[in-house]
Amino acid sequence: MTLAGRRALVTGGGSGAGAVIARRLADAGAKVTVCGRRSIDPAPGIRAQVCDITDERAVQALFATGPFDIVVANAGASDSAPLTRTTLDQFRAMIDVNLTGSFLTIREALRTMGGDWGRVIAIASTASLKGYAYVAPYAAAKHGVLGLVRSAALEVARKGITVNAVCPGFLDTDMTRRSIDTIVATTGRTPEQARASLAATNPMGRLVPPADVAEAVLWLCAPGSSMVTGQAISISGGETS
């Protein structure tokens, strides 16, 4: 498969799964832009910009550098605490970065995509599909992302644009390692025990490799996926809906 001639944007593309997705798109021939809240040192051949995806004007300015044929709404953050100890500010922070940021990204993508071909892909989570203890605001935001994706897909289905979500379980990334550190600090478990507890939430019993997420993104951009839209593709050994 080649994406030569396609322009792609990956939010939160400076590290973790976003960086792997950006590199894979570039390897397939796309001209890739990544963005993050802070300055990014991109891989060779990848352009980087600073953008806070919760800032409407900043997101509009980012898309003014397009248009983009492929938009991967990957930027996000997680936090954990019992619901009864979660502050309103913590809840709002999870909604802002995970749901509002996805809304602004997807909205501007659909506003600016031209021609009769486009791919919008939200990197959501298995927390879009089910609940997890101690991350209720994150799960609520990710459930919202999935509703956004399914609704947007119906609005543009006749325009050659597909909108889908890739929903990985716990990834083998720095974000998960920070979650492991939190578990160790709050429960007294060893890092190995904490890692095993997170891996156990995936039916295959291991953390999801970021490369698997990147390959799912590539498949959604490939010939043969043009009729796939409004879907949540689970990468954890769970079901696809």
Score class of each variant (00 low, 15 high):
1 M>T: 12
5 G>Y: 02
6 R>L: 09
8 A>P: 03
9 L>R: 07
11 T>E: 02
16 G>K: 10
19 A>R: 15
20 V>C: 07
20 V>W: 02
21 I>C: 06
23 R>K: 14
23 R>I: 00
27 D>S: 15
30 A>N: 02
32 V>K: 08
34 V>Y: 04
35 C>Y: 00
37 R>E: 01
37 R>Y: 00
39 S>G: 11
41 D>K: 14
47 R>E: 14
57 R>I: 06
57 R>N: 15
61 A>Q: 15
65 T>G: 08
70 I>F: 01
72 V>G: 11
75 A>K: 04
75 A>L: 09
80 S>K: 12
81 A>E: 13
85 R>Q: 14
85 R>D: 14
88 L>T: 14
89 D>C: 04
91 F>E: 10
93 A>R: 15
104 L>D: 06
106 I>N: 13
108 E>A: 11
108 E>D: 10
108 E>K: 07
109 A>S: 13
110 L>K: 06
119 R>N: 10
122 A>P: 11
124 A>D: 13
129 L>F: 08
133 A>S: 12
137 P>W: 07
137 P>F: 07
137 P>K: 05
142 K>D: 06
151 S>Y: 08
152 A>S: 14
155 E>K: 11
155 E>S: 11
158 R>K: 14
160 G>I: 01
161 I>A: 06
161 I>E: 05
169 G>M: 05
171 L>F: 03
172 D>W: 00
173 T>S: 12
181 D>C: 01
183 I>E: 08
184 V>I: 00
185 A>N: 10
188 G>K: 08
192 E>T: 12
194 A>H: 06
195 R>L: 05
198 L>T: 02
202 N>I: 07
204 M>S: 10
205 G>F: 02
210 P>S: 05
211 A>C: 00
221 C>R: 06
222 A>Q: 10
225 S>F: 04
229 T>L: 01
235 I>E: 05
238 G>Q: 14
239 E>T: 11
239 E>G: 07
239 E>Y: 13
240 T>N: 15
241 S>R: 12
